[in-house]
């Protein structure tokens, strides 16, 4: 992607909606395009967190290993973010990310984004506020999932 295309893609991504222009310019310089084939593993559980992705197309499954198998706990696609833990220091990936379809995304080195956040706290506020919103949304969805509302014990017999 040409730099102008990258900037346009960033400006239209829901995660960065409303971000001031100067910060879009800043992020444009850090972003690079990546693509993955179907069933390709983007990262594995336990991998050091390094890259943060904004998905442009395709579908990714977040999977967790349980004895003898992997279970998909969430799917992400265009407009979603992947790998938010790279915005924290000294963390590793909690899940495996596998492409259910070919995926295109814009990637950032999480450490470089965090360094920019440290240098410019206003930029940091914008990024961390979005990251917090993302984590809160995922937490809410996960809470409902673990309630297992569709189990026989959770509903009255019909």
């Amino acid at each position: 992607m040409a730099p102008a295309e990258i900037r346009n893609a960033l400006a239209s991504h829901p995660f960065l909606e409303g971000l001031p222009e100067k910060y879009l310019d800043l992020l444009s310089k850090l972003a690079f395009e990546v693509s993955f084939g179907q069933d390709e593993i983007i990262f594995r559980e336990g991998d050091p967190s390094s890259l943060f992705y904004l998905i442009l197309s395709g579908k990714v499954a977040l999977e967790i290993a349980s004895p003898g198998r992997h279970v998909i706990i969430q799917t992400l696609e265009a407009g979603d973010e992947l790998g938010w833990s790279s915005l924290l220091e000294n963390t590793s990936k909690q899940f495996r990310a596998r492409c259910l379809e070919p995926v295109r995304a814009l990637a950032f080195d999480g450490a470089r984004v965090v360094a920019l956040c440290e240098q410019d706290h206003e930029f940091g506020y914008h990024i961390m506020r979005r990251a917090l919103g993302l984590v809160a949304e995922r937490l809410r969805a996960t809470r409902i999932q673990v309630l297992d509302v569709y189990s026989p014990k959770g509903v009255r017999a019909q």
């Binding site: 579908k59 499954a61 977040l62 999977e63 198998r69 992997h70 279970v71 998909i72 706990i73 969430q74 799917t75 596998r98 259910l100 379809e101 969805a141 999932q145």
Partner: peptide, 11 residues
């Protein structure tokens, strides 16, 4: 929750 063969949405 989906198994690895599931290609649809999970969530």
């Amino acid at each position: 929750y989906g198994g690895v063969s599931w290609r649809g949405y999970v969530g």
